[in-house]
């Protein structure tokens, strides 16, 4: 057998590779062939929208579970709200990150948890073996430990935790379909609020923030600052094995692809850059004005599940006008930002 070129640091994997045995194949094949449900049956349905946000609950109701390296959810509960630190870094990082995310939505937007009605915040850590990912499954946040060679554990990054919980906020507010432009908007909204969770937690003004997503995830063996840059999409990493950050910063560079649900993590660079430009133009704490406009946009109820960039941009303009006025600096900043990234209003 022959394989692709892999850089030297991956050679260290050799010593730990298991022999790929075939013993379980027959049983596994039988199991799958016995499955009769249509493959699309499990496609995630659009979640029902929650009632408008009420008075924010004073504190979150967090539950952290441990999958113990298996890909089975939810795992065993290891820390509940108000419980002492566990001593497991991933558990305690998830617990603190959930708290920081709850604090942003409560303090800045008077939103009680992700559904606006005080929903408990659940997370599972140590999911899978060397699992290079974190995701929101519709009910909980799930974090892998990374492979230790390209990625470290995903709970290390507060912007990642904020990103995942914000998928929950989107699910309960706008339910943007996770495909194509609406999927890229879904991703961008999570990056926006993930960044704001981090800035709010650190007390950073827009000018002080890195505007990087997943700044803590790469190991020292990767040539890259982060997974994404909202300030300069396409510049987050440039690595021999991972390639170059593919995010566009302008509509003229929009990537048409079938990969990644139609490039949801790629083309999100365009609305990400637009948000950064609004926050940069207005200055101060980004969650107070730019973040407020984006929050109003996703919670106003006017976005279609398959909203395009243009439709979303128009919705942000209406949100800025409604909250800050027709002659406001906020409205001007929003209009200029979308023009700068090539989204025609």
């Amino acid at each position: 057998m022959r394989c692709t070129i892999v850089p030297p640091y991956l050679l260290s994997r050799l010593a730990r590779l298991d022999e790929a045995g075939l013993g379980g194949v027959a049983a596994a094949a039988h199991q799958t062939l016995m499955q009769t449900e249509p493959l699309r049956e499990t496609r995630q349905a659009v979640a029902p929208r929650a009632a408008p946000p009420s008075t924010a609950s004073p504190r979150p109701e967090r539950t952290i579970s441990d999958a113990g390296g298996r890909e089975v959810l939810p795992g065993s509960v290891v820390r509940r709200e108000g419980g002492p630190e566990s001593g497991d870094a991933a558990v305690d990082e998830a617990y603190d990150g959930l708290g920081a995310t709850h604090a942003l939505f409560a303090d800045a937007f008077e939103r009680s948890s992700i559904d606006g009605r005080g929903l408990g915040l659940d997370a599972t850590v140590h999911y899978g073996s060397r699992y290079d990912n974190a995701f929101w499954d519709g009910e909980r946040m799930v974090f892998g430990d990374g492979d230790g060679e390209v990625f470290r554990r995903f709970t290390l990054s507060l912007s990642v935790i904020g990103h995942e919980l914000s998928h929950g906020v989107t699910q309960y507010s706008s339910a943007l379909e996770y495909q194509g432009q609406s999927g890229a908007l879904n991703e961008s909204v999570s990056d926006v609020f993930g960044a704001l969770v981090e800035q709010h937690s650190r007390g950073q003004a827009a000018s002080e923030a890195s505007w990087l997503i997943g700044e803590e995830l790469f190991t020292d063996m990767v040539e890259g600052a982060a997974l994404r840059s909202m300030k300069a999409p396409g510049t987050a990493y440039n690595d021999d094995i991972l390639g170059v950050d593919p995010q566009p910063a302008h509509m003229r560079d929009f990537v048409d692809t079938r990969d990644d649900n139609g490039g949801v993590h790629i083309n999100s660079g365009i609305p990400n850059r637009a948000f950064f430009l609004v926050a940069d133009a207005l200055g101060g704490y980004a969650w107070q004005r730019a973040g407020r406009i984006w929050y109003d946009t996703i919670t106003a109820g006017g976005l279609e599940p398959r909203a395009t960039f243009v439709q979303f941009a128009r919705a942000t303009v209406e949100a800025a006008r409604a909250r800050f006025g027709a002659t406001s600096a906020e409205l001007d900043a929003v209009q200029r930002a979308w023009a700068s990234v090539g989204v025609e209003l």
């Binding site: 194949v25 027959a26 596994a28 094949a29 799958t32 062939l33 493959l39 699309r40 499990t42 496609r43 995630q44 990912n133 974190a134 995701f135 929101w136 499954d137 519709g138 995942e164 998928h167 379909e177 996770y178 495909q179 879904n186 991703e187 999570s190 079938r258 990644d260 649900n261 139609g262």
Partner: peptide, 19 residues
């Protein structure tokens, strides 16, 4: 053993951030 005919052109499952 893989059910190839059932998986042609199947795209994502709509779950955010999954592979």
């Amino acid at each position: 053993a893989c059910p190839w005919s059932d998986a042609v052109d199947l795209d994502g499952d709509g779950v955010p951030d999954r592979f």
